[in-house]
Design a protein around this nucleic acid. Structure first.
Lengths: 230, 230
DNA sequence: CGGGAGTTGTAAAGGATTTGTGAGCCGCGG
DNA sequence: CCGCGGCTCACAAATCCTTTACAACTCCCG
């Protein structure tokens, strides 16, 4: 079933661009350019998600957000903020926004976040699920403690190591492409080297493998990525 | 597989510099200096990514971007904007560009962004055409794991082997011409020997056949190509 | 049936690309 | 200031891809 979105943005140029892009993705889109109007539209039309600019004539995006939440609505809200308003992120999230992107934003990123918000009404951005516990062979990982155990040796893990391992664990038995891992762990806005992943894999193997040089669990799939044996 | 890029930039100096740098990175690059030309090239050559200058004689980068998106193409677009065009960044992105860099830009940054854009787009573009599972005789191929099983022997496969096998599997029971396979797997613009395919078939047979010397499944059709028995 | 031309099988060598890995840099928090 | 996580770099190693060379095979035609 088609999802209904509401776009609240005063700049006509941007508003139309957004609406077009979202409609092209198959969403049902309505739009408006005033905060007050937005509030009544949310009440009347109950959209599945709201894309909300912060800078609005009259009621600001913050005001809209606050009022909506005060009215006990839990509709996911994606905030648009102008460039360099980093601090606002905190404010926005406190007020009940679910995610936020800064202008100038990449359309692809916005679409991805809209999709993510619709899929799981999760508060956090790209936080992929990390299982609380992962086991394979004689290794057991306790995600909450950022710590693992191989046999009776225990070791600490860094957040990144954990995320990479989780990405592989979720697909255990299958090969996972390097690009997929990079996207999941580092995010689509990452502009670094792909070698960073190799380096991290080395560290991981030193912790989870009995013989890091001849990995038994975290094996490489040449030309593609890595696989965690089931 | 080499990624195919299009560079649209009217300043010959910059254009050549860009092309050289990108080619040095291993990309296949074509270029042009007019907006109109760009649009037809995008349609005809379907590049994996477009580097697009905003200031162009005739159609501007904005125009190109809009037309491309109107034509439902999703090719990632990286905009080049002149210095101090802050506002235009927003407009450009809103029109469907995926990222931007401002001139004068560091080559390093541009390369990083090109790589990142390709990475983001990767899962969407490659996900097709290879079936998740292929079986014949006592052989079972698990594409997602890049691995197969013959009887109770398991073996790993390379991405290329998988593609060739998939090309045959899709037409299983029918003979597939060598040229067809070469085009599908190596791409239309491949200048190598046709013997490369034979070599790969040898490798494949060693993995999937009980007697590689007397193939039962991957049989050769003399003067034409190969056939995978159904 | 036999021979020649063209096609394919296969091992081995070489080249190209991808990955492993140690060393060093940077930024951050203690 | 130090230590740590995270990143990049540079070189080594592993792997895959391609080419080469020659043997074996198939097809066609006399």
């Amino acid at each position: 079933m088609k999802k209904h979105l509401l776009v609240v943005e005063d700049d006509a140029h941007i508003r139309l661009g957004l609406c077009d892009a979202l409609r092209a993705e198959g969403y049902d889109v309505i739009d408006c350019c005033h905060g007050g109007e937005a509030i009544s539209l949310i009440r009347q039309r109950t959209p599945d998600l709201v894309v909300l600019d912060i800078m609005l004539p009259g009621k600001s995006g913050y005001d809209v957000c606050r009022e909506v939440r005060a009215a006990k609505s839990r509709v996911p809200i994606l905030m648009l903020s102008a460039k360099g308003q980093e601090i606002d992120k905190v404010v926005g999230l406190e007020l009940g926004a679910d995610d936020y992107v800064t202008k100038p934003f990449s359309l692809r990123e916005l679409l991805a976040r809209v999709q993510a918000l619709l899929r799981r009404a999760a508060p956090e951005t790209t936080a992929s699920e990390i299982p609380e516990e992962m086991t394979f062979g004689n290794v057991r990982i306790d995600s909450k403690a950022l710590r693992g155990k191989r046999g009776r040796e225990t070791f600490d893990m860094t957040p990144r190591e954990l995320k990479v391992l989780a990405a592989l664990w979720r697909e255990r038995g299958n090969a996972v492409a390097r690009d997929t891992i990079l996207n999941e762990v580092w995010g689509i806005e990452y502009y670094g080297t792909t070698r960073t992943l190799d380096q991290l894999v080395v560290k991981l193997r030193q912790k989870i493998e009995d013989k890091p040089g001849e990995p038994r669990w975290l094996v490489t799939v040449h030309g593609h990525g890595y696989r965690l044996e089931a």
